[in-house]
C-alpha cells in the first residue's frame, strides 16, 4: 500500500473509523423523516435547544453526523434518540427546517424495531405514559408518576415520591395538576382504535 502523508497532521497511527453511506441510506429509507437529516449543516442549535441536553449521550446534531459517518451501532444504541419529549424547540429553531423531533422519534422506533432496547428507566416511563394515554386519552400526571415510581418497587417508589414531593405540591399550587383523578376523554374508544392501528403499522407504542 502506497501512502502519502499530509505535511500538517500526519496519519494518526492507523486507520480512523471508516466512513460509509450504507447506514445513512438505511436511515433515509426506513426512518420517518430520515431523509431530512441530509439538510443538516451542523450548526448545533438543536443541541442547545433541548431541555434534556444534559441527559443525552449525543446531541441531535451529533447523531446526524454519526449517521452520515455510518456509525450504526453508536446511533441505534444511543440513549439520546429515546429521550425526546417532543418539546419542539429544536424543530422550531432549526435553520434548515429539519424536523428534528420527528427524526429522533423515527430513529427511536427504528432502533426498537431493530431490537435495541432503551434504558430500563426510559422504557418504564414510556410504558406508563403510553398506558395512561391509552386508558384516558390524556395524561394524568399524578397517575403516571405514581405508576412510574412504584414500577421501581415499593421501597424505591416511596423514596422517589418523597424526592419529588415539592414538585407535585408546586404543580398543584399552580393548577398544573388536579387533586382528583382525570376522567377519560370523550369517545376514548375511538382513540384506542386509532392507536391500535398505528401500532399495527409500526408507528406507535411505548418506547
Amino acid at each position: 500500500m502506497d501512502q502519502v502523508v499530509g505535511p500538517k497532521y500526519g496519519s494518526r497511527g492507523g486507520a480512523g473509523k471508516a466512513y460509509n453511506q450504507s447506514f445513512a441510506r438505511e436511515v433515509y429509507r426506513n426512518v420517518d423523516s430520515g431523509e431530512e437529516i441530509k439538510m443538516c449543516m451542523q450548526c448545533g442549535v438543536c443541541a442547545a435547544s433541548c431541555p434534556l441536553k444534559e441527559k443525552m449521550d449525543f446531541s441531535p446534531r451529533k447523531i446526524f453526523t454519526l449517521i452520515r459517518a455510518g456509525q450504526r451501532e453508536k446511533v441505534l444504541s444511543s440513549q439520546a434518540i429515546m429521550l425526546c419529549t417532543s418539546c419542539y424547540s429544536c424543530k422550531v429553531r432549526c435553520p434548515r427546517k429539519v424536523p428534528v423531533v420527528d427524526v429522533m422519534h423515527g430513529l427511536a422506533h427504528y432502533a426498537l424495531r431493530q431490537g435495541y432496547k432503551p434504558r430500563a428507566e426510559t422504557a418504564l416511563f414510556g410504558q406508563k405514559f403510553w398506558g395512561n394515554i391509552y386508558r384516558l386519552g390524556r395524561i394524568d400526571e399524578k397517575d403516571v408518576a405514581l405508576r412510574y415510581f412504584l414500577g421501581h418497587g415499593l421501597g424505591q417508589g416511596i423514596k422517589l415520591m418523597m424526592e419529588n414531593k415539592n414538585m407535585g405540591i408546586g404543580m398543584l399550587w399552580y393548577k398544573r395538576m388536579k387533586i382528583l383523578p382525570e376522567r377519560p376523554i370523550k369517545n376514548v374508544k375511538s382513540l384506542r382504535k386509532m392507536l391500535d392501528k398505528a401500532k399495527a403499522m409500526g408507528k406507535g407504542g411505548a418506547v
Binding site: 500500500m1 502506497d2 501512502q3 502519502v4 502523508v5 499530509g6 500538517k8 497532521y9 500526519g10 496519519s11 494518526r12 486507520a15 480512523g16 473509523k17 451542523q42 446534531r61 451529533k62 453526523t65 454519526l66 459517518a69
Partner: peptide, 23 residues
C-alpha cells in the same frame, strides 16, 4: 476537517484518512 493522509490500494482505489472536526 482536513486530510491527514491519502493512499492507494492495488486496484488503484484511494483511501483517505482525515480528521473530522465535527465527529
Amino acid at each position: 476537517g482536513e486530510l491527514n493522509a491519502i493512499s492507494e490500494d492495488g486496484n488503484k482505489n484511494l483511501s483517505v484518512e482525515a480528521s473530522d472536526a465535527l465527529l
